[in-house]
Amino acid sequence: MGVLYYGGGGVPIRIGDRALAHLKVVIATKLRRGESFTLSWTHPEDEPRGRSTLWLHPSIPLRFEFEDAEPEKLSRTWLEELANSAHSTGGIVLIPEQVEPDAGPPED
């Protein structure tokens, strides 16, 4: 399980390594362009029910921490879905990866 730390308070936000790796790419792209946006997700089952949203801004510290030392293979499809939501008025919404039954391993 990966962890996202945002802002000076450093409150850990637990997100699976695979999802966090995909979010990292999309978030870094938006922040590198100087864009601010929101990130929303549904709380994991081991936390109280609900959902959360962060306002991400290039000037606020952000750190991605992964449990696994090896980088994840990224799915181009999932990256595109997350990037498309990043460009919407609702911001990035962390959606589950859609894996097709006969798709095989994730794309590079």
Rank of each mutant, 00 (worst) to 15 (best):
V3A: 15
G7D: 07
G10S: 02
G10Y: 09
V11I: 15
V11L: 15
P12M: 10
I13Y: 09
I13R: 10
R14D: 02
R14G: 09
R14Q: 12
R14Y: 13
I15E: 03
G16R: 14
G16C: 10
G16D: 15
D17E: 03
R18H: 14
L20T: 06
L20P: 07
A21R: 05
H22D: 08
K24M: 08
I27N: 04
I27C: 01
A28G: 08
A28L: 14
T29C: 11
T29K: 12
T29I: 01
K30A: 05
R32P: 07
R32V: 02
R33M: 11
G34E: 03
G34C: 05
E35W: 05
F37S: 00
F37C: 00
T38D: 03
T38E: 01
S40G: 00
S40A: 08
S40M: 04
W41C: 08
W41M: 05
T42D: 08
T42V: 14
T42F: 10
H43R: 14
P44G: 08
P44L: 03
E45A: 11
D46F: 12
E47C: 08
R51C: 09
S52E: 07
S52G: 11
T53G: 06
L54R: 02
L54D: 04
W55T: 13
W55F: 04
L56K: 04
L56T: 01
H57A: 11
H57D: 06
P58L: 03
S59I: 00
I60G: 08
P61I: 01
P61N: 06
P61L: 01
P61D: 00
L62E: 00
L62N: 00
R63I: 06
R63D: 02
F64Y: 15
F64C: 07
F66G: 09
D68M: 12
D68E: 15
A69R: 14
A69Q: 10
A69M: 05
E70H: 09
E70Y: 06
P71A: 01
P71Y: 03
E72N: 11
S75A: 10
R76T: 02
R76N: 11
R76D: 09
T77F: 09
T77H: 07
W78G: 11
W78H: 15
L79H: 04
A83P: 03
N84R: 15
A86E: 07
A86Y: 01
G90P: 04
G90N: 05
I92C: 01
I95L: 13
P96A: 06
Q98S: 15
Q98Y: 14
Q98F: 12
Q98G: 14
P101E: 12
P101N: 13
P101M: 15
D102W: 13
D102L: 13
A103N: 10
G104I: 02
G104F: 05
G104T: 00
P105L: 05
P105D: 05
P106R: 07
P106W: 07
P106G: 02
